[in-house]
Design a protein around this nucleic acid. Structure first.
Lengths: 154, 154
DNA sequence: TGGTATAACATGGTATTTTATGGGAATCAA
DNA sequence: TTGATTCCCATAAAATACCATGTTATACCA
């Protein structure tokens, strides 16, 4: 029995002419524990696809409902965007999902899809965009390294 | 039943052509109590590999979720960096894990891997780098000894 | 304490299983 | 019927589990 449900690692898989991609086996194992499908939507802030279990969106919905935050109205708007965009995907017996044109176009994915674990969710990038994004993040982290060191050392 | 779950001691094991290394038996005993797998990732601050139990990352995921909101940019970057890099490793019946090229390269490990206990987590170094690091730490301690003495006498 | 028997471990090699991925058949919709 | 989508099968490659052996460490006994 599995105790934890984190999407980890970075895996590159091919996208064929029909838009089919293998969901990394690790991810599949996690999904299968709780469900038979994942939810994907266009990232609001980056040229990539976001994926997660439906229960995470449930949690998001609940959080928004309970929020008395000053910015809750903005969050509400953002939530609408996500829920309006999100779509369920099931995988076939070989573990593949079929991504839609809309999603692939937004992420600028052609040949290869890069799955990047993010804990409770994951992202799907094109190779080029992911390279750029990873470089950007590492550069940013370098500048805030002291803070991280503290966090890391906990 | 085991009472403590700390990774201790420093052990050197061989890495074969396939990247296989025996996890020190002490470490294995600890891991087996709670799980069947460990998680490894490139250290953000040093040329070494870090390893821990998945529950530590779970805790981190929860902490990040609670300290920042769903749409936070910091959360986004942090989760990409940490979870995107981390990978699960299970050991076979003889207690070995297979380290990836990415990890070995980052730590500059060739022939031998040095496992260094760090309590809740552990690190894996190349012999050369660990020698340097150990010397650096001991030097640092020497300089701060007066402070320690003062603290002791409080 | 010293010597020997026993068990545990690290490590090399091999066999088996998973997984990704291409192609094609079946199903559904227009 | 035609085009598109879903499902299933086949295969090659890669990941993983298993077996065997030498070595080291541990336990046992004199």
């Amino acid at each position: 029995m599995r105790k934890s449900f984190l999407f980890l690692d970075t895996i590159t898989n091919k996208v064929d002419a029909k838009g089919r991609v293998s969901l990394p086996s690790d991810y599949r194992a996690i999904v299968k524990e709780l469900s038979t499908e994942i939810v994907c939507y266009r990232s609001l802030t980056a040229p990539c696809i976001e994926g997660c279990l439906e229960e995470l969106l449930e949690k998001l919905a609940t959080d928004i409902e309970n929020s008395t935050d000053f910015f809750s109205e903005t969050q509400d708007d953002l939530t609408n965007l996500i829920f309006g965009d999100a779509k369920r995907f099931t995988f076939d017996s070989t573990g593949r999902i079929v991504l839609t044109e809309k999603l692939l176009k937004h992420a600028e994915i052609k040949e290869n899809a890069v799955f990047v674990g993010k804990g409770r969710k994951f992202q799907i990038w094109s190779e080029e965009n992911w390279l750029k994004e990873e470089a950007r993040i590492r550069e940013k982290i370098k500048l805030s390294r002291p803070t991280l060191k503290t966090k890391e050392g906990e």
